[in-house]
Amino acid sequence: MANYDKVLVLDIFNRFDLEIKAGRSGIKREITVSDIKRPGIELAGFWKHFVPERANLIGRTEMSFLRALEADLLKKRIDEYVAYNPVCIIVARGEKIPDYLLKRADESGIPVLLTNISTTRFSSMLLNYLEEKLAPVRVIHGVLVDIYGIGVLIRGESGIGKSETAIELVKRGHRLVADDIIEIKKIGELRLAGSAPENSRYFLEMRGIGIINVKTLFGAGAVKNESPINLTIKLERWDENNEYERLGIDTRKTTIMDLDIDEIIIPVKPGRNLALVLEVAAMNYRMKSMGYNAAVDFTENIMRR
């Protein structure tokens, strides 16, 4: 089930070192959507599709428009704006804010914040921050490791050897992200990131030994707090009746939070070095991402001959 982190205006204030100009009483207002609103057309009098739940960002263009209005019309527009109760107002480029807007925002408890960063740059920074913080989260079982910079999600039935494979990978210089319980965030529309819950971070369960702290045993370089999920490895017990992939031409996908992720099924039997197999899988995935597919190259060589 998906859930979301909570973002307060105070979090944005602290994260970007902003200056508060008015509405300090509303500094703990909660922001629930990652979209940002540039209220240009609204300040011109069109309020039909205004969404007050979005953080409002005002730049030089909007401020120039407001300063050009006659005093009575300026007050009317600001009164309309404040009546819609935007969750917060952030003014970019250090622009001078009309005194009447500060007065009305103070009365209504609407935080007005100021930054010297340009509007476009701050918009990008704020959007990235909110998308990450408010990304939908799903909890799944498995092991997540970083292999050569590739986030590999290992899945399979209980007792098949996921944690033991992760430890072997750590010994070979790779990094553990999460064991057993993985919190997956969908960031934007194209990216998944996984991490361990705060209370189980760096811990791993090995049957027969118990719980170990990977960071304590192997050092800080053996763990990672978060990783993108690029590739899924499904471990299953070797079945002689199954025909497993031999060439790797066909690409298999699995769906996580409506995103298709490359998946490889690895058959498990005694004596097979799973850590080595996963290393090769990660390197091969990286080569495919760079445009080289060994299976296609092999097939073309055969066809040429």
Rank of each mutant, 00 (worst) to 15 (best):
Glu168His: 02
Leu169Ser: 00
Leu169Met: 02
Lys171Thr: 11
Gly173Asn: 09
Arg175Asp: 00
Leu176Cys: 01
Leu176Tyr: 00
Val177Trp: 00
Val177Gly: 03
Asp179Lys: 01
Asp179Arg: 01
Ile182Asp: 02
Glu183Lys: 08
Glu183Val: 05
Ile184Asp: 00
Lys185Glu: 15
Lys185Tyr: 13
Lys185His: 14
Lys186Tyr: 07
Lys186His: 07
Ile187Thr: 05
Gly188Trp: 11
Glu189Gly: 06
Arg191Tyr: 13
Arg191Leu: 13
Leu192Ala: 01
Ala193Pro: 09
Ser195Ala: 12
Ala196Asn: 04
Ala196Gln: 00
Ala196Gly: 06
Pro197Arg: 07
Pro197Gly: 07
Pro197Thr: 10
Glu198Cys: 10
Glu198Ala: 12
Asn199His: 13
Asn199Arg: 13
Arg201Val: 09
Phe203Cys: 06
Phe203Trp: 06
Phe203Ser: 07
Phe203Asp: 08
Gly208Val: 10
Gly208Glu: 04
Gly208Gln: 04
Ile209Lys: 04
Ile209Phe: 09
Gly210Pro: 04
Gly210Tyr: 06
Gly210Lys: 01
Ile211Gln: 05
Asn213Met: 08
Asn213Glu: 06
Lys215Arg: 13
Thr216His: 14
Thr216Lys: 15
Leu217Ala: 03
Leu217Val: 06
Phe218Leu: 09
Phe218Lys: 02
Gly219Ala: 10
Gly219Tyr: 04
Gly219Arg: 02
Ala220Phe: 12
Ala220Met: 13
Ala220Asn: 10
Gly221Arg: 11
Gly221Met: 15
Ala222Met: 01
Ala222Gln: 02
Val223Asp: 02
Val223Arg: 01
Lys224His: 00
Lys224Cys: 00
Asn225Cys: 13
Glu226Ser: 11
Ser227Arg: 03
Ser227Asn: 03
Pro228His: 04
Pro228Arg: 03
Asn230Met: 03
Asn230Gln: 03
Thr232Glu: 10
Thr232Ala: 09
Ile233Asp: 03
Lys234Pro: 12
Lys234Asn: 15
Lys234Tyr: 15
Lys234Ser: 13
Lys234His: 15
Leu235Asp: 08
Glu236Thr: 14
Glu236Gly: 11
Arg237Ile: 15
Arg237Glu: 15
Arg237His: 13
Asp239Cys: 11
Asp239Trp: 13
Asn242Phe: 15
Asn242Val: 14
Asn242Leu: 15
Asn242His: 15
Glu243Phe: 10
Glu243Lys: 12
Glu243Tyr: 09
Glu243Asn: 12
Tyr244Gln: 07
Tyr244Pro: 00
Glu245Thr: 10
Glu245Arg: 07
Glu245Ala: 05
Arg246His: 08
Arg246Trp: 11
Arg246Asn: 05
Leu247Ser: 03
Leu247Phe: 07
Ile249Pro: 05
Asp250Phe: 15
Thr251Met: 06
Arg252Val: 12
Arg252Lys: 14
Lys253Ile: 13
Thr254Val: 09
Thr254Trp: 00
Thr255Ser: 07
Thr255Arg: 03
Thr255His: 04
Ile256Gly: 06
Ile256Arg: 05
Met257Leu: 12
Asp258His: 10
Ile261Tyr: 03
Glu263Ser: 07
Glu263Trp: 11
Glu263His: 08
Glu263Asp: 13
Pro267Ile: 14
Pro267Lys: 12
Val268Ile: 15
Lys269His: 14
Pro270Asp: 07
Pro270Trp: 07
Arg272Met: 12
Arg272Asp: 14
Arg272Thr: 12
Asn273Arg: 08
Asn273Ala: 08
Leu274Trp: 06
Ala275Thr: 07
Leu276Pro: 01
Leu278Glu: 05
Val280Thr: 08
Val280Arg: 04
Met283Trp: 09
Met283Phe: 08
Asn284Trp: 04
Asn284Cys: 10
Asn284Val: 11
